[in-house]
Structure formats: structure tokens, C-alpha cells
């Protein structure tokens, strides 16, 4: 089993994700430069960063790189794809996930630990959590305000495709717990098939005790388990 961690000009969480996958989770993971061929991999992580300096819109340029066609093909086969932070922005810009990530309602870069409620625990990324469980994973972004048309939001809700919401410690999705103004406190969503996850929080920054939380590691563990059973 081998997982690809994509690298675009300006990716900066690529090494952290590779480190967590190889050293903490214990699976082979290669850094794959966007001009190289994406072949022979069982899953993809699109890591965070500021690809192409957030030119035009966050994620817009990377989303149009030809390697994203290969990501689409892998996703069509049912292989797991996860986009983290800028990776989530790239996935929505490429149309692999619905909606858009806009400037935070209070237009400031937010770097903080947040509480997330697991609203879907049936996906390949979230099936080791309990439904409604509150987990702690950090965020670091300026464009994390999830927006989608009303009909898209209601589809996400009715199909249980909201993976995570920003909540308070008790698990309530209050406006105080919403760090960026996201519609309905949405922090992470899934595609229809459930094999693509996009999330603003950084699970790779919550994968070891020394970092204060190992909740993020469970996402990678579940992904690896899903690949093994594929």
C-alpha cells in the first residue's frame, strides 16, 4: 500500500503529512510533485499550504493542474482522497467537492485549536469515531468560510455528507464556536460516494500526544484500514 501526498508550488504541510503517514501511522507515503505521474497509489492526500500564493482564489490554480485529472480518476475508482485546508480549497475549486471556501467572516488568519463534532461516522475517514463525538484538531486559515447554495447545503445534510462541524465543548454548533462564518458551522464534507473528504482543520497537526491531541491520526488510520479492505 502506498499513499501519495501531492506537492504544488507553495504547499507547506506536505512534509508533515508524509511524516505522520510514514512515522506515526506506519504506511508508505511518497511526496508527488504536481508535474510527475500519479501512478501506483492507493490513496491521495492534498495537503495544506498556500499553493501558487493563493493567486486568483485560494486553490484555484492548483485545481487546474493536470495531476488533478489523475486524482479524479483515482476517486472515480473509489480510492480515498483527502484534502486538508488548502487541499480542501483545491478540491472544491476542482469540482470534486461542492461549494466554495471564502474569506473568514472576520477577515483574519485564524490559527487555533477547535472542537469538531463528528456528524458522519460511516465514511472511510471517520468510521473509527462515534457519531456526535467531539474531537480536537487545530485550524490555520484565512479562507475557511464554507459557502454553498441552499440546495447544496440541504443535500449535504440529508445525505449525511457533513463530516465535521465546529462546536463548543458540549458539542453544540453555536455561532461562538464557528471560527470563520462557515454555513451551518461546516468544517469538513464528503462527496456523494463518501471516498473524498475535504476539511479545513489539520489532522496531521493532531496525530501525536506531544501535540496535545491524537484525534487527527484516527482519520489517517481509518483511511489506511479502508485501503486494506479495498
Amino acid at each position: 500500500m502506498k499513499i501519495a501526498v501531492l506537492q504544488f508550488g507553495g504547499s507547506n504541510c506536505d512534509y508533515d503529512v508524509q511524516y505522520v503517514l510514514t512515522e506515526v501511522v506506519g504506511v508508505d507515503a511518497d511526496l508527488v510533485w504536481y508535474k510527475d505521474e500519479l501512478k501506483g497509489y492507493d490513496g491521495v492526500v492534498v495537503p495544506g499550504g498556500f499553493s501558487y500564493g493563493d493567486y486568483l482564489r485560494a486553490g484555484a490554480i492548483a485545481a487546474r493542474a493536470p495531476i488533478m485529472n489523475s486524482v479524479r480518476k483515482m476517486a472515480d475508482k473509489g480510492l480515498p482522497v483527502v484534502g486538508i485546508c488548502n487541499g480542501f480549497q483545491i478540491l472544491v475549486e476542482s469540482g470534486l467537492l461542492p461549494g466554495a471556501l471564502m474569506t473568514n467572516r472576520y477577515p483574519k488568519f485564524r490559527c487555533d485549536r477547535v472542537n469538531l463534532r463528528v456528524d458522519n461516522n460511516t465514511s472511510p475517514f471517520t468510521n473509527s469515531f462515534k457519531k456526535g463525538q467531539v474531537i480536537r484538531i487545530p485550524i490555520a486559515h484565512m479562507e475557511g468560510n464554507y459557502f454553498a447554495q441552499e440546495h447544496t447545503i440541504s443535500e449535504l445534510n440529508s445525505q449525511e455528507r457533513v463530516a465535521f462541524r465546529y462546536v463548543d465543548e458540549q458539542g453544540n454548533a453555536t455561532s461562538e464556536a464557528n471560527p470563520n462564518g462557515s454555513s451551518e458551522n461546516i468544517a469538513g464534507i464528503l462527496n456523494e460516494q463518501g471516498n473524498i473528504l475535504g476539511m479545513m482543520p489539520h489532522p496531521e497537526r493532531a496525530s501525536e500526544n506531544i501535540l496535545g491531541s491524537k484525534d487527527g491520526k484516527k482519520i489517517f488510520d481509518s483511511m489506511v484500514e479502508y485501503i486494506s479492505s479495498f
Binding site: L56, R57, A60, R64, V92, E93, P98, G99, A100, M102, F147, A148, Q149
Partner: peptide, 9 residues
């Protein structure tokens, strides 16, 4: 449609 604008917003 394909790059300059994001039709969602």
C-alpha cells in the same frame, strides 16, 4: 466558467 470566476459565488 473554467477559471477566472467561481460560478458558486
Amino acid at each position: 466558467r473554467r477559471l477566472l470566476a467561481n460560478p458558486v459565488i
